[in-house]
Design a binder for these strands. Structure first.
Lengths: 176, 176
DNA sequence: AATAGTTATCTTGACATCAAGAGATTGGCA
DNA sequence: TGCCAATCTCTTGATGTCAAGATAACTATT
């Protein structure tokens, strides 16, 4: 390959010296996915910060918008969609409520249930951040050739399949 | 494609309905990387737990072992290698020291410097977990065809390059 | 109706992490 | 030599997260 070695190549080389008896090649894929996710997160956070948002705040609002009008979900639905525990959801909603980006409303019929709704203010902030976020993602992928993207996408989908991440699977975690 | 849709395909479909004016296609790659990293982490943690280890504990010990004999680094070197702040490093070392997996030793010549060294007990636990960890990774990738792996690897390396993650770049984060 | 089990949300306590800065030591330069 | 800037580690306070369980409300069965 003519490609420049990256950080993971460095780790592989170190392991080859220290434990030549072990085949650490799976790390070339799995280690890179983890590492790239961390590197990507830093870049994504930088744009969210321009809109005074934490990535988890963007995540919650994105989940509400994705759900379609009236941009309203229960805490339980947010739990499942974002792969977080209920305690975390409560905390997130409370914080966003304090900032005026969502409202809480108790259900009339089933008083256990709460409805979390994106406010107009929340929607405005989100939409602005969303456009910048997508542009940010587009820019990060710009150096990749069409072939790179196709291969990467195929590979990632195959890995999704290998891990059993079906369309019905719960969990979000990715940003928008 | 004949591949089954995954969770990210679901999000893309939702966005296509809600905001057909936006091109959210970069999410197909970037969102998947983030999501896959989270899913992988869950699987990796499960094996670490069998050895009563947190993934950050495994990370620290892996960094020490990778560095070669005498399996000793300074907190600063650990900071840089693991992409964490110095406060976090202090905390990690203290915890591992309490468990008897590493020792702290002040440098004789430069009294600001500390040397963190893996103990024999730490090495034993790490080696056992390491073997299981690699086997775990291997199993996760087993469903992928040779072509899938090649494409995925090429794509990931291309993305590494796009993000400027050179071999000299600091930061670790990936597990072993 | 009364009760037991289920569901939905929230609370509590512990913990890993970060940002910012404090404390200690070293090295260079006047 | 004496002092200032740089370096290295650690401390502090805040935050987001989870696991476990508490609380309240609903449902089904008797």
């Amino acid at each position: 390959m003519s490609v420049a070695p990256d950080a993971v190549d460095g780790y592989l080389a170190q392991w080859a010296l220290e434990r030549p008896d072990l085949d650490v090649s799976p790390m070339a894929i799995i280690g890179r996915v983890s590492r790239l996710a961390a590197l990507l997160q830093v870049r994504l956070d930088a744009v969210f910060a321009e809109y005074d948002l934490q990535s988890w705040e963007f995540d919650v609002m994105a989940t509400l918008v994705r759900s379609g009008a009236p941009y309203e979900l229960t805490p339980g639905a947010l739990d499942r969609s974002m792969m977080i525990t209920s305690g975390t959801t409560t905390h997130r909603i409370t914080k966003l409520e304090q900032r005026g980006f969502v409202t809480r409303r108790r259900d009339e019929d089933d008083k256990r249930v709460v409805h979390v709704k994106l406010t107009d203010a929340g929607r405005q902030v989100f939409d602005a951040a969303h456009v910048a976020h997508i542009e940010n993602e587009r820019t990060m992928l710009e150096p990749l050739s069409e072939q790179d993207r196709t291969m990467l996408l195929s590979g990632l989908r195959a890995l999704s399949g290998a891990l059993g991440d079906g369309a019905g699977a719960s969990g979000d975690t990715q940003r928008a």
